[in-house]
Design a protein around this nucleic acid. Structure first.
Length: 511
RNA sequence: GGCCCGUUCGUCUAGGGGUUAGGACAUCAGAUUUUCAUUCUGGUAACAGGGGUUCGAUUCCCCUACGGGCUACCA
């Protein structure tokens, strides 16, 4: 079997969209599974849309996600350059080949000429207003002009494009790995521009030439390319590369969570979830976007989630590491229909991966975060906190968000809990308890519990009745991890001082 | 408009001519828990519609509806 060589070919027109990450992922999975090569090709043939920094951003994003590139701008490789703007000469050379073999022609039409043609077509009631076999003989091109005229126009510097001459009355059949056979009549296709007047190729030419030269075996890309795939097939044939044509797989799109249509940045902003892998500041608008990384998503969770959007292994296993995905992946099991983007599922995955992490690893994260808050915390204490908190968090930052009380005494107390649970009995027990704790020489969760039980027993008040009051006094909140562990972690002195503060400041609410 | 692609619980999906149509997320209920969360148990919930083919269709075919993509000297 032919060596598997796949490519992810984004254009650097902005941050990498999450859908692009999935496309890259599927390419990567196939490459790794088959012992093939993953190529990153930068498709920067549109000079107007070039956004500085986008290229770096794309590479950094893929690296973060764990999608490794074997050949590309950074990595180099035997088929470079991997930036299309640096391959300009190659494309014009191949365009010449098409010109000579009669598969392409020069066109000198102006914007106004094209517009007039479309109007004429519209007036005849035609379904399509295209530059095609139906209209090309009415236009200003090397098909209608003499060789002499054509040569003169080019020599005198008239702007021109090179168009592909779509063959007439053919049926193009392409075999898509996901969709099966797709066939299109060439009469539906237009004479696409291959080389633009600025000397750059269009996507269609560049993509076919590069895929051929780079020996790409599988083209795995978004469904938006399906309509132009027949044109690409025709191009391969025109070049005489029919036998070396890659296999195609057109991926279903990622749809917005509500309603219909493809997932856009607007939807993500509106619903409050990231659309880009990493933080991104648009250099033109200065608009800032939070990335998945910064929002607290773990790359392995994002990857697992993305992999399952449009693909599944056919088993009931939900959690897959990258290596497991590589093992299990198959293009044939990719679905055909678009998948709505469900951020809740992504959060669930994140939770699963987060809780699978060791306390040591989580603690390191916590300690790092605490530095930003100017709080010092031993690794040992941080590990204890992570141990009691990890079952209740979705994002790493929740460790701090939900566990602030481990470091800062509560400044305010949950009203609902106070009004319900802060009563005479509670005050009585907590006062006695505070005094008892103060006298203790050693203190840990077990001792804290034993002492509390002794106090409630002596006062003949059920322990359960006052636990919520104790919790709110210590943490300010009505919920949280095991109270005895909280006391052990914050320590005896802190327990005493927090109780004293609460006892002095909380009023019993009557009624 | 034209062309192409698609359609199983709210969502991601498995399945496939005869199944109690399976799982996961979400949701609801119960249990556990000192609270919240977790965990456990259970529940609600789907084959877009109409025609065929067939003994039988959700599964195969056609049509319709709906949805999406494309329709640039953008990718």
């Amino acid at each position: 079997m032919k060596d598997v060589r796949v490519r992810f070919a984004p254009s650097p027109t902005g941050a990498l969209h999450i859908g692009g990450v999935r496309t890259a992922l599927y390419n990567f999975l196939l490459a790794r599974q088959q012992g093939g090569t993953m190529i990153l090709r930068i498709e920067d043939t549109d000079q107007n849309r070039y956004v500085p920094g986008a290229e770096e951003y794309i590479m950094d994003s893929l690296a973060w996600a764990g999608i490794q590139i074997d050949e590309g701008v950074r990595e180099g490789g035997p088929f470079g350059p991997y930036r299309q703007s640096e391959r300009k000469e190659i494309y014009s050379q191949y365009a010449q080949q098409l010109l000579q073999s009669g598969h392409a022609y020069y066109a000198f039409d102006t914007e106004a000429d094209l517009e007039a043609m479309r109007e004429r077509q519209k007036a005849t009631g035609s379904d399509q207003q295209q530059y095609s076999s139906a209209t090309r003989m009415t236009m200003r091109n090397s098909l209608t002009l003499s060789a002499e005229e054509t040569r003169k126009l080019i020599e005198t510097g008239h702007p021109y494009v090179i168009r592909f001459k779509i063959p007439e009355n053919e049926t193009v059949v392409l075999h898509d790995l996901i969709r099966g056979e797709v066939s299109v009549q060439t009469a539906q296709l237009d004479d696409k521009v291959l080389m633009k007047s600025d000397g750059m190729p269009t996507y269609h030419l560049a993509n076919v030439v590069d895929d051929y030269l780079m020996k790409i075996s599988h083209v795995i890309r978004g469904e938006e390319w399906l309509p132009s795939a027949p044109l690409h097939v025709l191009l391969y044939k025109a070049f005489g590369w029919g036998k070396d044509m890659p296999q195609f797989a057109h991926l279903p799109l990622l749809l917005k969570p509500d309603g219909n249509g493809k997932l856009s940045k607007r939807d993500a902003d509106r619903m409050g979830f990231p659309i880009f892998p990493l933080n991104w500041t648009d250099p033109n608008t200065k608009e800032q976007s939070t990335g998945y990384r910064e929002a607290g998503y773990l790359p392995e969770a994002l990857i697992n989630f993305l992999a399952f959007l449009g693909w599944n292994p056919g088993t009931e296993q939900e959690i897959f590491s990258m290596n497991e995905l590589i093992q299990a992946f198959s293009v044939e099991r990719i679905g055909k229909a678009g998948a709505k983007f469900d951020i809740q599922k992504a959060q669930w995955y994140n939770q699963q991966y987060l809780r699978a992490k060791s306390n040591t690893e989580l603690a390191t994260h916590l300690v790092d975060h605490l530095k930003k808050e100017n709080i010092t915390c031993s690794q040992d204490k941080a590990e204890k906190i992570c141990d009691v908190m990890k079952e209740r968090i979705t994002f790493p930052q929740d460790l701090w968000e939900q566990g602030k009380f481990f470091f800062n005494a509560p400044a305010s107390f949950d009203d609902g809990v106070v009004s319900k649970k802060w009563n005479d009995d509670a005050v009585k027990v907590l006062t006695t308890y505070r005094d008892a704790v103060e006298k203790l020489s050693t203190f840990d969760a077990a001792i804290a519990k034993e002492t509390l039980e002794q106090v409630t027993a002596s006062l003949q008040i059920g322990t359960g009745k006052i636990l919520q009051a104790l919790r709110v006094a210590l943490s300010g909140m009505g919920g949280g991890p095991d109270l005895m562990m909280i006391m052990e972690i914050i320590g005896k002195e802190e327990v005493v001082s927090r109780l004293t503060f609460a006892l002095n400041n909380l009023k019993i609410k009557v009624g």
